[in-house]
C-alpha cells in the first residue's frame, strides 16, 4: 500500500461514484409497474433500492479501507516502536 497519504475528499473519482450511488438509492427512475411486481412480497423497486444500498455500503467500506490513509502508517510505526 506504500506510505503515500490518501484523503477521500481529494479523489474526485470517489465522489462521482458516490453521486451515482446516491442517485441509485433515490426512487426516481422506476416505471409505475415496478410497484406491482412482487419478489417474495417485496415490490421490485424496493428490492432494487435495497440492492443499491448494499452496493453503497460495500463501496463505503472499500473507500474507508483503501482511500483513507493519513495517519495509519505513522501510528503503526509508533506502536511498533512502543512495543
Amino acid at each position: 500500500m506504500g506510505s503515500e497519504k490518501r484523503e477521500p475528499i481529494k479523489n474526485p473519482r470517489i465522489w462521482i461514484i458516490l453521486g451515482i450511488l446516491l442517485a441509485m438509492i433515490t426512487p426516481w427512475y422506476f416505471p409505475a409497474s415496478f410497484g406491482e411486481i412482487l419478489v417474495y412480497g417485496v415490490p421490485l423497486w424496493a428490492v432494487i433500492i435495497v440492492l443499491s444500498s448494499l452496493l453503497l455500503s460495500a463501496y463505503l467500506s472499500y473507500v474507508l479501507k483503501y482511500h483513507w490513509m493519513l495517519e495509519e502508517d505513522e501510528e503503526e510505526a509508533e506502536q511498533k516502536g512502543a512495543k
Binding site: 448494499l54 453503497l56 455500503s57 463505503l60 467500506s61 474507508l64 479501507k65 483513507w68 501510528e75
Partner: peptide, 18 residues
Amino acid sequence: KSERTLKRSFSRMAWMPF
C-alpha cells in the same frame, strides 16, 4: 484510539442500517 480503529468502526456502521 487510532485512524485504523476509526475507519473500522465507520465501516461497520455502514452495514448497520440493514
